[in-house]
Simulated assay, not measured.
Amino acid sequence: MTDTSIPSRDVLKSQAKRLRQDLAGRGQTITHAQALETIAHQWGARDWNTLSAKAAQHHPGWAPGQRVSGRYLGHAFAGEVKAARQAANGFWALTLRFDEAIDVVTSTQFSAFRRQVNTTVNAQGHSPQKTSDGQPHMVLHVS
């Protein structure tokens, strides 16, 4: 499978759903699993699990100079990707530079301003590390 334009897993599942609907409209029924396998073959994969894994890894990527916004330790920010490296298991190691320094401390007793941070995120821009209330340390959105 060398095609780099594989859509997201959700798009692939939608294709399988439409395939089932189209075939059902013609009187031919297939299971959802059969539809997924058919979609996988159409994309050049040997099976759904292979295509699904490839789709999970596929992301246009995070790239230096890319504008991003989001929340870091609960604080909103806007900035840009200074450095990006694809790591293992679909994660990305990023260095982000905020447009304005943010205070990453919730205490009223002192402040700790950050203008640049290193973080690890998945393809959706969420860090695996979470705060004590269960929120990801980093949530990124492409600006």
Results as ranks from 00 to 15, higher is better:
94 L>I: 03
99 D>Q: 10
77 F>P: 01
118 N>P: 00
111 S>G: 01
98 F>W: 10
51 L>F: 14
42 Q>S: 10
65 G>T: 09
67 R>M: 11
62 W>F: 15
117 V>E: 10
48 W>T: 11
85 R>S: 10
117 V>Y: 05
56 A>E: 15
44 G>I: 14
49 N>I: 05
100 E>Y: 04
91 F>Y: 14
39 I>Y: 06
115 R>C: 00
96 L>K: 07
46 R>M: 08
48 W>P: 06
58 H>I: 04
67 R>A: 15
84 A>P: 03
123 A>E: 03
112 A>D: 07
88 A>V: 05
50 T>A: 13
46 R>Y: 09
80 E>C: 05
72 Y>V: 02
68 V>S: 06
42 Q>C: 07
112 A>L: 14
42 Q>H: 13
56 A>N: 07
92 W>P: 00
75 H>Q: 15
36 L>M: 13
85 R>F: 09
114 R>D: 04
117 V>Q: 03
81 V>Y: 08
60 P>T: 12
124 Q>C: 00
118 N>M: 03
88 A>K: 10
106 T>D: 07
80 E>V: 04
81 V>N: 02
39 I>D: 03
89 N>F: 09
50 T>L: 10
55 A>C: 04
121 V>A: 08
57 Q>M: 09
100 E>I: 06
117 V>F: 05
58 H>P: 00
35 A>M: 11
122 N>W: 04
33 A>V: 10
53 A>F: 13
82 K>G: 01
81 V>I: 15
53 A>I: 08
78 A>K: 14
112 A>G: 04
97 R>D: 06
101 A>D: 12
62 W>G: 04
101 A>M: 05
81 V>A: 03
29 T>D: 12
33 A>Y: 07
41 H>N: 07
32 H>P: 00
72 Y>I: 02
74 G>L: 11
33 A>D: 15
70 G>K: 11
37 E>M: 13
92 W>Q: 03
31 T>D: 09
100 E>G: 00
82 K>V: 08
121 V>I: 12
66 Q>K: 12
111 S>V: 09
44 G>K: 08
110 F>E: 10
118 N>I: 02
122 N>Y: 03
93 A>R: 13
66 Q>C: 08
68 V>M: 13
47 D>C: 06
47 D>E: 12
75 H>Y: 09
104 V>M: 06
111 S>Y: 11
55 A>L: 06
35 A>E: 12
71 R>C: 04
38 T>N: 07
101 A>G: 13
53 A>S: 13
112 A>N: 08
115 R>V: 01
92 W>H: 05
90 G>A: 03
84 A>Q: 06
86 Q>T: 02
110 F>H: 14
78 A>D: 12
66 Q>T: 08
84 A>R: 07
63 A>P: 00
38 T>M: 13
51 L>K: 13
